[in-house]
């Protein structure tokens, strides 16, 4: 892979880490807030259903996690398993897309009215 591609992946990895840090803080804060009086599916769905804001928030969260995870796994596979090259690139891209699809499906399930 070209140097530019490598550097862009590196930048994407750091940028998504920043996004994830913010998303995780919001996510944890909401969990603590949401469970203060007991936790029910109805209460969660009451907050998320039809909410564009929560839909966008969790879609961004999922996108960042899928990108960050795939790039990280690519590095782990290269360094620990010696799995590099075109096959590794496609494998990691596929893992990223699967994570993205699963995540967005879950977001859709709680946000769709």
């Amino acid at each position: 892979m070209s140097r530019r591609f490598e550097v862009r992946l590196w930048v994407a990895q750091r940028a998504t880490a920043v996004v994830l840090a913010a998303c995780v803080v919001v996510h944890l804060a909401v969990i603590i807030y949401a469970v203060r009086g007991g936790l029910t599916a109805a209460e969660i769905l009451g907050r998320t259903r039809g909410s564009v804001a929560w839909g966008v928030f969790y879609a961004v969260f999922v996108l960042a996690a899928a990108t960050h995870g795939a790039i990280g796994l690519r590095t782990v596979a290269a360094e620990w398993l010696g799995f590099r090259g075109r096959a590794a690139e496609w494998t990691m891209a596929a893992i990223g897309l699967v994570l993205l699809a699963l995540g967005l499906r879950a977001v859709f399930a709680v946000v769709a009215a």
Binding site: S2, R3, R4, V7, R8, W10, V11
Partner: peptide
């Protein structure tokens, strides 16, 4: 070096 090379990556030039 990481900082110094980021701008090259984002500029579209081959860093």
């Amino acid at each position: 070096l990481k900082r110094a090379t980021i701008s090259l990556a984002l500029s579209g030039e081959e860093p």
